[in-house]
């Protein structure tokens, strides 16, 4: 149903420019990976703390507040590089199961992070309760799925 849209994506100026360049795709991919590193760090520091691990000397709310701008910066890098990567091989992505898994999980992960996790983390202190721990674990699981499915796009 969406196939014509994906065909159009690949025919766009950016899609064609990346697809026809030797260097563009690898460089965008490398920067996408740098974004993954920053995203991983900004998420893990808070998720581990919500689970009662890692930087346990600090309150959950303090770590979440500090990590937030870096989390957003990382997501901005991921999206800014991910879109041209996608455009260059949109038709392949359309038929790729891993891509579908990634793109179905991504909005859930984003909604959960900014809708649920952030609200809970903001009011959480030194002793995270069971609810907080579950949210930290769910956040890790969601983002792990996004990242793993993302890596598997290239293998499937």
């Amino acid at each position: 149903m969406l196939e014509p849209f994906f065909r159009w994506c690949e025919s766009t100026l950016v899609g064609q420019a990346v697809a026809n360049s030797v260097w563009a795709f690898p460089i965008l991919e490398a920067v996408h990976l740098l974004g993954l590193c920053l995203l991983g760090g900004a998420l893990l520091v808070v998720d581990l703390r919500m689970l009662g691990l890692g930087l346990t000397g600090q309150s959950v709310s303090r770590l979440a507040r500090h990590a937030r701008p870096w989390l957003i910066a990382a997501l901005a890098v991921m999206v800014a590089t991910g879109i041209p990567l996608f455009l260059s091989e949109a038709i392949k992505a359309y038929y790729n199961t891993s891509f579908r898994v990634k793109m179905s999980t991504l909005p859930v992960a984003l909604g959960f992070t900014f809708g649920v996790r952030e609200r809970v983390a903001r009011n959480e202190g030194m002793e995270p309760g069971p609810r907080c721990k579950v949210i930290g674990a769910v956040s890790l699981a969601l983002w792990f799925t996004v990242a793993a499915a993302g890596r598997w796009i290239g293998f499937s």
């Binding site: 993954l36 590193c37 991983g40 998420l43 930087l55 770590l63 890596r151």
Partner: peptide, 25 residues
Amino acid sequence: LTLGLFVGATIMMDLRLTGLAFRNV
């Protein structure tokens, strides 16, 4: 995927060392 853990955690500590983040941690 372990990049997210290893380089991710390294980046967080480096940002603290440069004074760019987590200033009161």
